[in-house]
């Protein structure tokens, strides 16, 4: 209605058609506003690949992409866990420290002759237990997620340091290393092979399960509802308390799994492993289009976010001219742009 006079003013039929088209685009964008940041992340990822290929070459090839996945499998797993947490409007700062504690403990137990499968299970359960502790603090003692997980972060880091302050090397014959076995899928020329490790497969499975839970189970819908309005979710009779507890258990468990994947690849565990990884994972989730205030976002977006971060490191290494110290500044800039983009989307939605 309100647009009719304007349209009359630009009365040529061509002008009207353009206005119509713009209207349609605007409507589409508004309908799908919450997917916009995720789409933007995907576009940036593709743009980075194209730029890298043109500027440095040897990006779009099996070996580079395989390495990208292998080197960032643990980050993808962490990002999936944090997607759950952030979707509810919470935060989990403990995941990096959990990896340190879990991996140091795992390597030491393994070297002490424990059954590797028991060790792997324990490494994962350490994460679950820490997540459960955070969840209980948050849900039943009404501690803010930031503080509760910060406490768990210090606790886990401290426990890791108590176990050992020197790099612990995993025995070469340990079964844990099996997770880093390189399976050649496609044998390319020279070293240009498509390679997959069990670690990458695990990450893929985690992503698939995360997607299923969030979009195809009632638990997942409750996660989104809590992010929209916790009070409303409660009044609707949704199991808010249990779900919030689960969220942190999931995040902790995935940190444990990430720890197994990472340790098997590197073969070394140290108490200072994983410092700042929680922030990398949060950055991946935000770049992937999940709102920090909760309620909107996608697991697949977080995967793209993690890969954007990983690819950025590759490009900086390839460039050679950019000092590695710049990495964090670039990460920060990308993060900033995405948060501004989200602001825009929220602003329009309200």
């Amino acid at each position: 209605m309100t647009q009719t006079p304007e349209r009359a003013a630009t009365s040529t039929s061509g002008g009207a058609r353009i206005v119509d088209f713009l209207d349609a685009v605007q409507r589409k964008v508004q309908e799908r506003a919450s997917t916009l940041p995720t789409v933007a992340a995907l576009i940036i990822f593709v743009a980075m690949i194209v730029y890298g290929e043109i500027a440095y070459g040897r990006i779009v090839q099996f070996s580079t992409l395989s390495n990208l996945l292998i080197n960032n499998a643990h980050l993808v797993i962490l990002a999936v866990g944090l997607t759950f947490v952030i979707l509810t409007g919470g935060i989990d700062l403990s995941v990096g420290a959990i990896i340190a504690f879990s991996s140091v403990a795992g390597v030491m137990l393994s070297n002490a002759g424990w059954n590797p499968y028991v060790v792997i299970l324990l490494m994962i359960l350490i994460g679950s237990a820490m997540g459960l502790a955070s969840g209980i603090l948050i849900q039943y003692f009404n501690v803010q997620p930031f503080i509760a997980t910060l406490a768990m972060m210090f606790l886990a880091r401290g426990l890791a340091s108590m176990l050992s302050t020197v790099p612990e090397r995993l025995g070469d014959d340990s079964a844990i290393r099996a997770f880093a076995t390189q399976w050649k899928i496609i044998d390319g020329p020279k070293v240009n092979d498509l390679v997959v490790t069990p670690g990458v497969l695990i990450a893929a499975i985690v992503v698939a399960i995360g997607f299923f839970v969030l979009h195809r189970t009632r638990t997942g819908r409750t996660v989104y509802a809590i992010g929209g309005s916790e009070q409303s979710a409660e009044l609707m009779g949704l199991p808010v308390h249990v779900t919030k507890l689960w969220i942190y258990v999931i995040s902790g468990t995935l940190a444990g799994i990430a720890s197994v994947v990472y340790t098997s690849r590197l073969g070394i565990a140290q108490n200072i492993t994983g410092i700042g990884w929680e922030l990398d994972a949060i950055a991946a989730v935000v770049i992937g289009g999940t709102l920090l205030t909760g309620g909107a976002g996608y697991v697949l977006g977080s995967v793209v976010g993690a890969l954007v971060l990983g690819l950025m490191n590759v490009l900086i290494t390839r460039d050679g001219g950019i000092r590695p110290e710049m990495t964090t500044i670039i990460t920060g800039s990308i993060l900033f742009i995405f948060v501004m983009l989200q602001r825009g989307v929220i602003g329009r939605g309200r």
Partner: peptide
């Protein structure tokens, strides 16, 4: 008391989604 971030259908059916073996 509904969730502004979700669609009409999602709000109406929250907690009562129709499920099959493939999830919702």
């Amino acid at each position: 008391d509904l969730c502004g971030n979700l669609s009409i259908a999602e709000n109406v059916m929250l907690g009562n989604e129709v499920r099959s073996w493939r999830g919702i």
